[in-house]
Simulated assay, not measured.
Amino acid sequence: MLQTKAWIYLTVQKTGSTFLSKKLIEIYGQAAFSKDRKHGIQKKSTSKSKIITIRDPFDYYFSLWSYGLDGKGGFSNKLRISNPSLAEKIYGKKTKSCFSHFLDLALSFPGRNSQSEVSWLPRSTDLYTARILTMLVPQDKIERFSSELDCDFSGKSIAKSLNELLPEVIIRTEYLNYDFHYLASAGELDFMELPTNWSQIFVKDAARLNSSSSHEVDGKKLKQHEILSEYHKNLIELKCTTAKYLIQTANERIKELESRV
């Protein structure tokens, strides 16, 4: 979480948050931000404006798996310690089979225990959804949110339960640079009080850090449908309704702003 006196950037891992956080710190200076944990959650509700970056679920999981192949990330490191044989099955090679084993785990086990920050979510919650919801739902709103959701992760239920918790700004990771610049020009980021030189620091065509590598597995560049089994494709569609709802909301907002021009 990156927080100033006026706004909060909710930093969901592997959604371009490292890149955007660094740019924002360059723009404002480190002193403008409170000393929050990198991916710290909201302890209490606040009236501060909020920003979040959201990534397509398939790209998210492919990026997270690829990150683990390089021996990076808490998810892969914890797995290598707790279950070395499973870690080898998942990260042994860059193959469709290893990616499938990774999805089997990540889509059904968000890596938590009874003491963790996401212990309030159903154990069937996938990792990405768990990470998003722990960022969006302040701890003092968990009981109410859980009651309204009632373990119903359908798109309609998620939309209703998150109604009052949606950030003012949702930026699509795939179009991160464009969205930020466009929203700023449309006045959607006025609450950030960006300094006049911000676009010189964060140029529109700046290369993103930790952007996804090409979908190359088994030594070949493959399209999404060639990497995913029908089973895992359906499972992602079923489980990742939160991410899809946020992306849909972002798409609709961009279209609405474009229609005014």
Rank of each mutant, 00 (worst) to 15 (best):
F102P: 03
F102R: 06
F102D: 04
F102W: 09
F102S: 03
L103S: 04
D104T: 09
D104Q: 12
D104Y: 08
L105E: 10
L105I: 10
A106N: 07
L107F: 07
S108R: 15
F109Q: 11
F109E: 10
F109G: 02
P110R: 12
P110K: 12
G111H: 12
G111E: 12
G111I: 04
R112C: 05
N113R: 03
N113T: 09
N113W: 09
N113A: 02
N113C: 05
S114Y: 11
S114D: 09
S114E: 13
Q115N: 11
Q115K: 14
S116A: 12
S116P: 06
E117F: 08
E117D: 08
E117N: 08
V118C: 01
V118D: 04
V118A: 02
V118P: 00
V118T: 07
S119V: 13
S119T: 12
S119A: 14
W120H: 12
W120K: 05
W120A: 07
L121M: 13
L121Y: 06
P122Q: 10
P122K: 08
P122E: 07
P122V: 10
P122I: 11
R123T: 02
R123D: 04
R123K: 10
S124M: 11
S124D: 11
T125P: 04
T125E: 02
D126H: 12
D126T: 06
D126W: 09
D126V: 09
D126R: 08
L127K: 05
L127I: 12
Y128F: 15
T129Q: 04
T129N: 01
A130H: 02
A130E: 05
R131C: 03
R131V: 01
R131Y: 05
I132P: 03
I132V: 14
I132C: 03
L133D: 01
T134I: 09
T134Q: 14
M135S: 09
M135Y: 00
L136I: 13
L136R: 03
L136H: 02
L136A: 02
V137A: 05
V137K: 13
V137I: 15
